[in-house]
Nucleic acid binder design. Structure first.
Lengths: 226, 226
DNA sequence: ACCTGAACACCGTTCAAGT
DNA sequence: ACCTGAACACCGTTCAAGT
């Protein structure tokens, strides 16, 4: 059997199980993160999910912190690249924000992880390329540098804030909770008099509608910056 | 020495050290939370800060989870009560939002804790009274029930989102970081070409100014709901 | 009544083998 | 080259004493 490949590839499988890689380890960790939250993200649990002893992970990852870095890298890899058209900036901006919100929601638990542990040291310049494009877009439609920066800050704030404050709780409500009130404090005792909250309880809005309301506010806010 | 008090009070001190109470334990935990983050919030660290063995805490607190509940209670106790004047609703709303933001910032680490561990089961109806008042205010200025609810949702979103996305990182930047870019990913390598981000780097705004921009957007957004 | 100290099952991580 | 298993210092929590 001649070796047709120039260099022998790393085998994809080993004893029937797929070979461990940094990425596969990170993906297993992301599954745990989404299913059970950051507290359950332990080396032992990751090993168990991969059918391997916790020690085996250390052949690919320096330590838990290094694993966190790989998780960040895996997430950033599929972050949407902005396709923004200055000629149709309102709808462009909305569309990009929707994509970005979807990306946040597609990685449940990541925002919680970022708050629980400091993930900023893992940021690479590559990850800022999308932000650079957004700033370019705001300059392109005619905003001053100060206004462009402000518009960018507010945009990030709206999308990340919505994903964090609203979607995080709404997408995975705690066991007993109804998605009725704001940050997850609805059930309440029935005897407490909260007449006005009760009066508007029926007027609950789907998160998507609320997001569009926020987008309308954002577009109007940017408009006022010219 | 006759007992002038009807019932003997619990002594305030014991062996020179202040007596343990649920609240004092929770306050020690809050100090750790603010100084070192949720990962350092261990029973052993709380005990150490109070000069007591970790076991001693269990005489006042059922377990770590129960301690988290007491922490929530302590924080909620000094949450600002809205003083909203429908006759001057724009400034009223801004002032309340500023207070609310200040409250969030006054309890650093709480938002991170709320994301890391599920704190929603500890919510009591009492805590919703402030929200009820805000909804009443929006109804009072003439919004429909649906609009009032939307206005309330967006208000919470703006303030909590700002505190979480912006203030959290800005108030305690990670060791090596400059508060230059958005969610804490600024330093970057100098070779990477991020020309537009660089172009607006000088136009950085103080968080307070950015918050007022967000408030202006919020007021305009509410105006559009009539 | 309230404390300490030892102990247990968990965590991250390392060391010394195994194949 | 890559794995397992035992071991260490940590965590939450409990048990059995101490005063």
């Amino acid at each position: 059997m001649p070796d047709t490949e120039r260099s022998r590839r790393r085998p994809e499988f080993r004893k029937g199980r797929p070979t461990l890689t940094r990425e596969r380890i990170a993906r297993a960790a992301l599954e745990i993160l989404g299913d059970a939250g950051p507290a359950e993200l332990t080396m032992r649990n990751v090993g168990e999910r991969l059918g391997v002893s916790p020690r085996a992970l250390y052949n690919y990852v320096d330590d838990r912190r290094d694993l966190l870095g790989e998780i960040v890298a895996v997430c950033q890899a599929d972050r949407p690249v902005p396709r923004l058209d200055p000629g149709d900036w309102r709808d462009s901006l909305r569309a990009y924000c929707r994509e970005l919100r979807g990306w946040y929601r597609g990685h449940p638990g990541m925002l919680a992880l970022a708050r629980a542990e400091d993930l900023t040291p893992f940021t690479s310049p590559d990850m800022l390329r999308a932000d650079d494009a957004v700033v370019a877009f705001f300059l392109d439609i005619g905003l001053s540098p100060a206004a462009a920066r402000r518009a960018w800050s507010v945009t990030v704030l709206q999308v990340a804030g919505f994903a964090e404050v609203w979607d995080t709780w709404h997408d995975r409500p705690p066991p007993g909770a109804e998605p009725a009130a704001w940050t997850g404090i609805p059930p309440a005792a029935s005897d407490a008099d909260l007449p006005h909250l009760r009066a508007v309880a029926g007027a609950a809005e789907a998160p998507d509608e609320l997001f569009e309301t926020v987008m309308t506010m954002l577009v109007a806010g940017v408009e006022a910056m010219f």
